[in-house]
């Protein structure tokens, strides 16, 4: 798919849509985890965690590749993970 060539720049978790099915965590355990409210957050540098718009570079885990992040977003049964490329264009969903 053409999408895979674009670079992931920013990720957002829509907490209203997230239901804690955790398929993103299965796909990309280095990036995502559940918080106390059963919603997905991203693990950032310095130990902070958020669902808000997060720059790819500020993720704590540097090893997870773009394809894995996009797969994780695509695995979400409620399309709660939004992925943007370097031009600010939404790659998924």
């Amino acid at each position: 798919m053409a999408d895979e060539k674009k670079k992931v720049k920013k990720i957002v978790v829509n907490r209203d849509l997230c239901i804690g099915a955790a398929s993103c965590i299965v796909n990309a355990p280095g990036v995502f985890e559940l918080d106390a409210e059963n919603k997905v957050v991203m693990k950032k540098d310095g130990g902070t965690k958020t669902s808000d718009a997060t720059e790819r570079q500020s993720l704590e885990d540097k090893a997870t590749d773009d394809e894995t992040i996009i797969n994780a977003a695509q695995s979400c049964p409620t399309k709660a993970i939004l992925v943007y490329d370097e031009d600010g264009k939404q790659i998924y969903p």
Binding site: D16, L17, I19, A21, Q74, P77, T78, K79, P93
Partner: peptide, 23 residues
């Protein structure tokens, strides 16, 4: 489609577009 969405209030009550159930 997302079988998991079928039991979620956001889907039932039309808070998300119906077609978003298709993945």
């Amino acid at each position: 489609y997302s079988r998991i969405m079928l039991s979620k209030p956001s889907f039932f009550l039309g808070k998300v577009p119906f077609d978003s159930v298709f993945l």
